[in-house]
């Protein structure tokens, strides 16, 4: 449990903005700005934050869909990308599930071919063996092998997400990055997919990076949670600790802002944040959260608080952590 499967070391991803074809690249959008994390074997790490916090970008870097501007990702102690390692090799170890189950499946391929494609690309097994594996996968995710000859358009959103999960499982990866896998689904279907993800994890001892903006789903599935804001980590804690006693004022505000499905709590005291999310193109100086923080003072507007270990396993980037 404690052995890190993936280590993310000081990852940065900067995009040039406002430059023409030959223009000088002097303005940068810092989507991810120096993030260091570890993901243990069999663990689910939740990544939460609001739009523009860089959670999806970080997820895509881990899968190898984006190259970081700076920093490195290590898988079982070895660098993920680099000499002699191709993106395709990576696919055997790390897979991804996407938010939009409509856009992430090729409409012209039938379900068998979609799920079998990773096996075909890696030249695993004979045609018959591959078909058998596809049927097993379909049944694993709660569909039947008869669904294999159908096309994505014939399925509902929840069923498509199941197909996406089957495809991600095809190569027996050790880590799956789930980018908002239930945000586009109806409430009753979300619960089905969350349960399926948990079951699959128990079966295979998989690790997940679970990216979401909704705290409920993240709380339900994660062992540890990373809270991000404008490209930086604000807090890392075990799930229970994070909800029982949030260290960072931003975490506290996020938790407080979620509408509770219990009308008896409607008059509770809420931490209502002022103002809007600043643009990641032009983040505030000092602590990035200072423009909306109820605790911010002069020090926060000048100096950026480092991410420090407050107590064993709990990290926060705040001068006045709770």
């Amino acid at each position: 449990m404690s052995e890190p499967l993936v280590e993310i070391r000081n990852i940065k991803k900067h995009y040039p903005v406002g430059s023409g074809l030959f223009g000088k690249k002097d303005k940068w959008l810092k989507a991810v700005d120096g993030i260091t994390l570890e993901i243990n074997k069999g663990e689910t790490l939740g990544l939460v934050g609001e739009s523009g916090c860089g959670k999806s970008t970080l997820g895509r870097i881990v899968v190898g869909l984006l190259n970081p501007t700076e920093g490195e990702v290590f898988f079982e102690g070895k660098p993920l990308m680099g000499k002699g390692r191709s993106r395709r090799e990576l696919g055997k170890k790390i897979q991804m599930i996407f938010q939009d189950p409509y856009a992430s499946l090729n409409p012209r391929m039938n379900v068998s071919n979609i799920i079998g494609e990773p096996l075909l690309l890696h030249k695993i097994g004979t045609t018959r063996e591959r078909q058998k594996r596809v049927d097993e996968l379909l049944e694993r995710v709660g569909l039947s092998s008869a669904h294999g000859i159908r096309y994505p358009e014939e399925f509902s959103g929840g069923q498509r997400q199941r197909i996406g999960i089957a495809r991600a499982l095809a190569l027996n990866p050790q880590l799956i990055v789930c980018d908002e896998p239930v945000s586009a689904l109806d409430v009753s279907i979300q619960a089905q997919i969350l349960n399926l993800l948990k079951d699959v994890q128990e079966d295979r001892g998989l690790s997940y990076i679970f990216i979401a903006h909704g705290l409920q789903a993240v709380k339900h599935i994660s062992d540890r949670i990373v809270v991000m804001y404008l490209g930086k980590v604000m807090e890392i804690s075990r799930t229970e600790d994070l909800f029982d006693n949030p260290l960072h004022p931003y975490t506290a505000a996020l938790i407080s802002a979620v509408p509770e499905p219990d009308p008896t709590l409607r008059d509770r005291e809420r931490v209502l944040l002022k103002g809007d999310l600043p643009s990641p193109e032009n983040p505030p100086i000092g602590c990035r959260f200072n423009t909306r923080c109820p605790l911010a003072d002069q020090r926060c507007r000048q100096k950026e608080p480092p991410l420090e270990e407050v107590s064993p396993g709990r990290w926060a980037a705040c001068f006045y952590h709770g």
């Binding site: 409920q216 339900h220 509770e260």
Partner: peptide, 13 residues
């Protein structure tokens, strides 16, 4: 089927 934010997490929804 809605995961709860308060209290301990249920293992399965």
């Amino acid at each position: 089927s809605v995961p709860k934010l308060r209290g301990a997490s249920e293992n399965r929804l």
